[in-house]
Simulated assay, not measured.
Amino acid sequence: MGVTYTQGTDPELLNPVELSQHLSATLRNSVAWLATLSNADASVSEREGKWCAKEILGHLTDSAVNNLGRIVRMQIAFEEMPGYAQDSWVQLQDYREREWAEVLALWFALNEHLVWTIGHINPHNLSNPGVVAGTPLTLGFLIEDYIAHMEHHLTALKAWIHPGEN
């Protein structure tokens, strides 16, 4: 699985509704300032060799697609699931050339569906084990790490786009 963004909570202490609400709050807090970006501003990289805002949200969209499948699969049965080549996914989908409003809408819609899906998980399933890219984990950890990963990228993007704002 590579980099993790959270230490993880004991799955017995997690609540799917609270996880869903956390993700929803992250979306709503971010979409307000993300929507203020122009297409031109969202197309400019922080520096050479780095992703622009469109590509960062594209990456987070790809993460949503991959993790939705994992979240559903881990509720059904134990599985060993692959990671994904994030740089290739972003490049092949050419997010930089897509309209910012479309990238933002896709990211938001997929994550709204994840909010719904996570909120309807049986709490006992949060302890379900799986393996992602060779890393053993629980469904609860996967969801916590997914949210922390999103917050990591959004915080970094906001600090770059809107320096001095929290």
Rank of each mutant, 00 (worst) to 15 (best):
G2C: 11
V3N: 07
Y5L: 09
Q7V: 01
G8M: 01
G8H: 03
D10H: 09
E12M: 06
L14S: 02
V17L: 12
E18T: 12
L19C: 09
S20Y: 01
Q21S: 12
S24D: 10
A25P: 00
L27C: 05
L27S: 07
R28E: 15
R28D: 15
N29E: 13
N29G: 12
N29I: 01
S30T: 05
W33M: 05
L34N: 04
A35P: 06
T36E: 04
A40P: 01
D41S: 14
S43K: 01
S45Y: 02
E46I: 06
R47K: 14
E48F: 08
G49I: 02
W51Q: 02
C52T: 13
C52R: 13
A53C: 03
A53D: 07
K54A: 12
G58H: 09
D62L: 02
A64L: 01
A64D: 04
V65W: 07
V65M: 11
N67H: 14
N67E: 06
L68H: 11
R70Y: 08
R70K: 06
I71F: 15
M74E: 01
M74F: 12
I76R: 11
E80D: 10
P82M: 05
Q86S: 15
D87I: 05
V90S: 10
Q93D: 13
R96S: 13
E97H: 15
R98K: 14
R98L: 13
A101T: 15
A101P: 00
E102M: 13
L104I: 06
A105D: 15
F108W: 10
E112P: 01
H113D: 15
V115C: 06
T117G: 00
I118L: 08
G119R: 03
H120T: 05
H120N: 13
P123F: 08
P123Y: 08
N125W: 02
S127W: 06
N128L: 08
N128Y: 07
N128E: 08
P129Q: 14
V131E: 14
V132Y: 01
G134N: 04
G134F: 05
P136H: 04
L137K: 08
L137C: 08
T138L: 05
L139F: 00
D145Q: 05
Y146K: 02
I147Y: 07
I147D: 09
E151G: 06
T155C: 06
A156L: 07
L157D: 03
L157G: 07
K158R: 14
K158P: 04
I161E: 03
P163Q: 07
G164P: 12
G164N: 08
N166W: 04
N166E: 15
